[in-house]
């Protein structure tokens, strides 16, 4: 599963940089700097488009910050289709991403990844990355059996 994403720094408004102290997430590998959001971060976060605005939300329920949300950062598309999230009033969101990270492989993402936003018991927004079974290419490239549900893209 996708353990992190990177977003071109130009995609993130300055106001968000300051409010969420994103400075330490900026990385340079050449070309345009990028902002990394990794599940292994002490405070895992993901950018999401909500109500036409880019916002930063908590990524999953690592460390069991919520007592009733699943302790993971991902969910299957099939699980959503089967209605398992229905009672939590989920909202489908887009997670903008320039790159995805899976087992050490950084791969290009054109737009982003689909996500599911749900509130925890304190009404804090928590986002889960939506997954689907890996394509043949993705499985060979990353050796992973699941891949993120990409927005209008199939790799």
């Amino acid at each position: 599963m996708c353990l992190g994403i990177a977003l071109a720094s130009s995609e993130i408004p300055n106001e968000l940089f300051a409010r969420h102290a994103l400075g330490h997430r900026v990385h340079e590998r050449g070309g345009e700097p990028e902002v990394r959001f990794l599940y292994r971060d002490r405070h895992p976060r993901l950018p999401v488009w909500r109500d036409g605005r880019l916002q930063i939300a908590r990524w999953g329920n690592a460390g069991r910050k919520s007592r009733f949300l699943p302790e993971t950062g991902w969910t299957w598309q099939a699980t959503i289709d089967q209605g398992y999230w229905k009672n939590l009033n989920p909202v489908m969101v887009d997670i903008p991403a320039s790159l995805g990270l899976e087992r050490g492989v950084w791969y290009r993402i054109r737009q982003g990844v689909r996500g599911l936003l749900v509130p925890d018991e304190n009404r804090v927004a928590v986002v889960y990355m939506i997954c689907e079974p890996s394509s043949h290419y993705y499985q060979i490239m990353t050796r992973s059996t699941r891949m993120p549900l990409l927005i209008e893209e199939r790799i």
Partner: peptide, 11 residues
């Protein structure tokens, strides 16, 4: 990946 962990891969 070992030689260039910062590499970006495209199809």
């Amino acid at each position: 990946l070992v030689k260039c962990p910062e590499g970006v891969y495209v199809k």
